[in-house]
Design a protein around this nucleic acid. Structure first.
Lengths: 221, 221
DNA sequence: AAACATTTGTCCGTATGTATA
DNA sequence: ATATACATACGGACAAATGTT
C-alpha cells in the first residue's frame, strides 16, 4: 500500500480545502450531475460552512473546468459530451510522453525499483479482480514517472486531465473494469526503456500505453 | 482581423475580474516583484475595492502559479529561478506540436489566409523595429493554430504557459528584442505543412520554431 | 412596464492562527 | 513562556443584477 505523501501537511484543513475536495469528489463521481445547478447558500448549509469557502472553492472548480459560473446569474456543473473524451487523451499522451523523455535524464536505480514494485502491485490486482485498485496503481505508476521528470507544469496539467478522465469514466462507464493485463506488460517495457536510457522508446511506449484504453472505448460507451 | 468572441459578455466587469487582470499584469510585468509580500487590505485600498475580490483573485493567481499563499500566514509573489525557464518550453512545445497535428485535420482555406495575413504583419514589425508588437503577432499566429486544433485543454494550458514565459521575459530580459526574422520563415513553412496536410512536418516545424528562442537565451540572460 | 423573488457580488466585522518581542 | 501585533479565514448582512410574474 502506498504511503500518502501529504502526511507532513497539518491535519488542520481549512474550510475552503474541505469544501473543494468534497465538491470535486461529488462532481467527478457523478453525485452532482452534469448540468446540475449549484447554489452556494444551499451547499454552505449542507457542508456546515458559510458561503465564503463555497465561493472560493467555486473559483477553483471553474478554472479546473468542473463547473461554469454565469456571473450574476447562476452556477452549474459542466456538461459532458461523450465524444469529447478523446480530446483529453491527446494532451495527456503528449505530456506523459514528454515526461518519459525527461525522466530518462533523471532516473536512478531506486526509481526503477519503485516502478517495478508499483507495477507488481498493479498486476496482482487483476488476480484479485480488484479493478478499482488496479486503476489507482496505474495512476501511481504514471505519477511516479511524472515526479521523476521533475517538471511542475507537466504535473499540474496531467493531474487536471486525469481528474476529467476519471469523471468521464464515472459518468459514462459505471463498472470499474477499465484496465487490462496488457497494461502491466506496457509498464515493464517502459521501465526497461528508462533503464537503458532510450529516449525514443520511452516516449513511444508511453504513448502506446496511454492510448490503449481508447481502443476499447467505443465498445464501452 | 478576427472579431473577439467575448463580445457577447457584458462590458460590465466585476471587481474580481478587474482585480485579477490588474494583478496578473503587475506580476507578469514585474511591477510586483518576485517574492514580494502581498497584503489583501493594502491592495484593496490601492484598487478601490474591498478585500473579498482581492482574495478571490488570489485564489486564481495561486493556481496559475503567480503567487503562493501560506495559509494563515502570508501571501507572496512566486519567485523565479532563471534556469527554470527551460521547463516551460518542454510542455509548450509538446502541446503546440500536438495542436499542429490536430489542426491539419480541421484546417480550411480561410484559416490559411488568416495565418498568412498574421505572419505578414509579424514580418512587417521588424522593418519598423516594433519588437513588442512583433511578439504579439507571434502569439496571435500560434493562438490561431490552437484555435483551429479545437481542443480546450491545449488552449488553457498553453495560455497559462505563455503567461509564465512572458513573465520570465519581463523579469530577466528587459528589452523586447526576443523575436527574429527567422521566425517568419518558420511560420511560412508551418503554413505550407498545414496546407499540404503533412502531419509530421507540421509538428516538427512547430517544435523547431518554438525552440528557436531557447538557443539565444544563454546570451541574453 | 414594474414590482418581486432569487442568486450572485461585495463589504466589513470578528475569530483564528502565526510570528516576534 | 506569555503577551502582543499582524495577516489571514470565515461569517453574516447588504447591494446589485437577473429572470419572472
Amino acid at each position: 500500500m502506498p504511503i500518502p505523501n501529504d502526511y507532513s501537511t497539518p491535519v488542520r484543513l481549512s474550510a475552503k480545502e474541505r469544501t473543494l475536495t468534497q465538491l470535486q469528489k461529488w462532481i467527478v463521481e457523478g453525485t452532482l450531475q452534469p448540468g446540475e445547478k449549484l447554489v452556494d447558500s444551499e451547499l454552505a448549509e449542507a457542508l456546515g460552512v458559510s458561503r465564503t469557502p463555497i465561493r472560493e472553492a467555486f473559483q477553483l472548480l471553474e478554472v479546473q473546468g468542473l463547473i461554469q459560473t454565469f456571473p450574476g446569474k447562476e452556477t452549474r456543473v459542466t456538461t459532458l459530451e461523450k465524444d469529447d473524451i478523446v480530446k483529453l487523451y491527446g494532451p495527456l499522451t503528449a505530456l506523459h510522453a514528454l515526461a518519459a523523455e525527461l525522466a530518462v535524464a533523471n532516473i536512478q536505480q531506486e526509481n526503477i525499483e519503485e516502478l517495478r514494485a508499483i507495477n507488481a502491485s498493479f498486476s496482482e490486482c487483476f488476480d484479485k479482480e480488484q479493478y478499482y485498485q488496479a486503476m489507482e496503481f496505474d495512476e501511481k505508476f504514471h505519477d511516479t514517472i511524472l515526479q521523476i521528470a521533475n517538471n511542475p507544469y507537466i504535473l499540474t496539467f496531467s493531474s487536471s486531465l486525469q481528474m476529467h478522465i476519471r469523471r468521464y469514466k464515472y459518468i459514462f462507464i459505471k463498472r470499474p473494469n477499465w484496465e487490462s493485463q496488457a497494461a502491466a506488460k506496457d509498464h515493464e517495457a517502459i521501465i526497461q526503456a528508462l533503464e537503458s536510457r532510450d529516449v525514443e522508446a520511452a516516449a513511444s511506449l508511453m504513448k502506446h500505453n496511454l492510448l490503449r484504453p481508447l481502443k476499447n472505448l467505443d465498445a464501452m460507451l
